[in-house]
Design a binder for these strands. Structure first.
Lengths: 194, 194
DNA sequence: TCAATATATGTACGCGTGTACATATAGTCT
DNA sequence: AGACTATATGTACACGCGTACATATATTGA
């Protein structure tokens, strides 16, 4: 799993609380790795036990106390070790393709609706990537003087854009194929004309 | 989660044991949804408890007994309900992109090696898809007279092919970008020339 | 005034799932 | 003769992670 190392990498930029990390996560790594708040807190605790980070409670004025974590030398070492590690290939987990696999068993009209929903979802993602996310990267790059890092952030964004475009093209291709096939001879959706 | 419904769909084609299902899985759904043997047995037991399937032990001659599962009416109903359900969008989980995000922190040479390994992995997948998997689909299509289903199986294969090609192109794009940038001014890998 | 939201920290529970282990038979290869 | 592979069924354990819940303060909007 990548979460501890993702957090290690973010804390390495600058010390942070669990809440801080959640916010940073939502603007970046969130797009290719999930993490809910309770999960982040839990992982931070484990990481402290392992000696990768240490915490320091800063009393909050009016607001709740802030438990700020920073990297230890062991954490730094572990992070770099993980980075140099040979790549882990993602194991595919695409629930939508499971439905496609069995789509013969559903009315064609319904399957088309599914395809159109997927298309819309990825079209929305694509727009978000090209507008919001691209802007956030430039923001962070300027705010923290991180133009060197930003090159790599843009690479992850580029992956997302290509992925979204690929799915959109695949949906269009699938919809075209269904159009020419029209109603299949078995007449599965004959009871739903039009 | 999709596993119970994937199994429901496979058992619907014809009654099967856990072991049968594992083999069928490896030739099909395996490419977009994972399932190990213990997981399949566990899930079958849960599905029987829910009344979606029933088992029938066939004594094996010489070989171990076969516990053959077949669909109930409730299982049939649940499967079709799941199929018609609005699509679940995959939550991205791409450990390799997490490394890309922090790649500024590693020597460029090492990052290039990572990219080349990813490229090789997806090139291998692409070849497997275009040769083996395409052939397996035609085999199943003929053996079980399932040319109608095969259209949809080919759609999932087409997705895999597009995905693999996309990642390969992204890797090439990234490698090009690193080539022109040459060694970055910070000289992170200056201690490793050549 | 009441509700919602942001800041900030967590605990408890349970599900999904991966890895390792246990068991038994038959055939094949070295 | 011994090792390995295929057939066939599972159990046990542990980890990752998502959901719901608990707590406390300050500000904003209806």
């Amino acid at each position: 799993m990548s979460l501890p190392h993702a957090l290690l990498g973010l804390i390495r930029y600058r010390p942070a609380t669990g809440y801080d990390l959640k916010n940073t996560f939502e603007n970046s790594i969130h797009f290719f790795w999930n993490a809910a708040l309770p999960h982040i807190y839990r992982t931070l605790k484990q990481m402290e036990t392992q000696g990768w980070i240490v915490s320091n409670v800063e009393p909050g004025e009016g607001k709740p106390d802030r438990k700020v974590y920073r990297l230890t030398e062991a954490g730094e070492k572990e992070f770099l070790r993980w980075l140099s590690q040979p790549p882990e290939n993602p194991e595919p987990r695409l629930p939508m393709l499971v439905k496609v696999f069995f789509a013969r068993q559903m009315p064609v009209r319904e399957f088309k609706e599914h395809l159109e929903k997927w298309r819309a979802h990825y079209a929305g993602l694509l727009e978000k990537y090209e507008k919001e996310v691209a802007a956030v990267i430039e923001q962070y790059s300027l705010r923290y003087d991180a133009s060197e890092d930003a090159c790599y952030w843009r690479l992850t964004l580029d992956y997302g854009i290509r992925q979204a475009k690929m799915v959109i093209e695949w949906c269009d291709h699938a919809l075209e194929g269904l159009q020419t096939a029209a109603t299949p001879p078995n007449g599965l959706d004959a009871h739903n004309p039009g």
